[in-house]
């Protein structure tokens, strides 16, 4: 009796919940996703960009801080495919290393945001009543706070630690996830299999985490996918203001900032990082939209 799958009795088939249809939901979703060219394109680009950022630098003889001062800023050539920056550093290698940071920030900060948002939203949605009212009022208030301003203050005052960057961005981006999860939990908790589990005497946390949450994985995945680009945008935004990753390390935001400063003489310093960054965001958004359509998650605002 320790693991109880949601019961799938015959008379429930007509009102089947996602979990009851088992793998067929995911199979359907996959079939739908496969037809969405843009989403597939996005997924493909993401895989390529990730592999390039992770593995690419290993095959290069240049380091990201290695300077060829005699070269200065040089246009793309056979030696340096994307050219070099004003200190003679290879732009391709720096873009790939920068991508590692940008992607890492995107993933880790999203993870922070999703964890907070899911737990918070699940608790609020499960308990409802006063608990929910207070918790969601807090979310409402936080929504109206100028959070970017606080992130900027944090970064200025407490040094530009990358860990702090993760936490600060994660702390900002969880609000939407909390709202979505809350609404979903409220819907699912009224279903009969939850009632059944409750009648078996399972504890609240078990109900939430073992029975309800697995049934709302779809929306969580969709909004996680859509959170990543906004997190990456925020990181780049901070880096652009000089508050993100510090030299000699780089992120795409830093490279774009450097490129924008030198664009008059050396436009490629702006073009390539900007293009890679935008392409990645495009891909994430296409994939997120595709997943939303495939998993049939309504983009409802409460």
């Amino acid at each position: 009796m320790t693991t109880l799958a949601p019961p799938a009795s015959p008379e429930q088939v007509s009102t089947a919940t996602p979990a009851e249809r088992g793998s067929s939901l995911w199979h359907d979703a996959w079939l739908r996703l496969r037809k969405n060219r843009l989403a597939l394109f996005g997924a493909g680009v993401l895989v390529l960009v990730s592999i390039a950022c992770l593995a690419g630098p290993l095959f290069s003889s240049y380091g990201y801080e290695q300077q060829f001062l005699e070269l200065g800023a040089s246009a793309p050539s056979s030696q340096h495919w994307l050219g070099t920056d004003t200190l003679g550093r290879d732009l391709l290698v720096r873009t790939l290393y920068g991508g590692r940071i940008s992607l890492a920030v995107g993933l880790v900060a999203t993870l922070v945001a999703v964890t907070i948002g899911v737990v918070y939203g699940a608790v609020a949605g499960f308990f409802e009543g006063k608990v929910d009212a207070v918790m969601m009022r807090i979310v409402d208030i936080m929504y109206s706070l100028p959070f970017t301003i606080f992130v900027i203050l944090l970064m200025v005052f407490f040094g530009r630690e990358i860990i702090l960057l993760f936490v600060a961005i994660g702390a900002v981006e969880w609000l939407t996830m909390a709202r979505i999860v809350r609404a979903q939990v409220m819907a699912v908790k009224r279903m009969e299999f939850v009632e059944a589990a409750r009648s078996l005497g399972f504890g609240k946390s078990r109900l939430i985490f073992r029975h309800i949450l697995p049934n709302i994985v779809g929306p969580i995945i969709v909004y996680t996918t859509l959170t990543i680009p906004s997190v990456m945008l925020l990181e780049a935004f901070l880096s652009f203001l000089g508050l993100g990753v510090q030299a000699p390390m780089s992120s795409w935001g830093v490279l774009i900032k450097d490129g924008a400063e030198k664009m008059e003489e050396f436009p490629w310093l702006l073009y390539f990082p900007g293009a890679v960054f935008s392409l990645t965001l495009f891909s994430l958004n296409f994939l997120g939209d595709g997943l939303r359509d495939a998993l049939d998650v309504r983009s409802s605002k409460d």
């Binding site: 680009p229 945008l233 900032k257 924008a260 702006l270 900007g274 935008s278 958004n285």
Partner: peptide, 22 residues
């Protein structure tokens, strides 16, 4: 819509400056 979501202002702005101003 996708472009607005995916190409950040700090990329668009320098590009426009480069093209239209410089």
């Amino acid at each position: 819509g996708m472009t607005g979501l995916s190409v950040p202002t700090f990329v668009v702005a320098p590009l426009l400056v480069l093209a239209l101003s410089i």
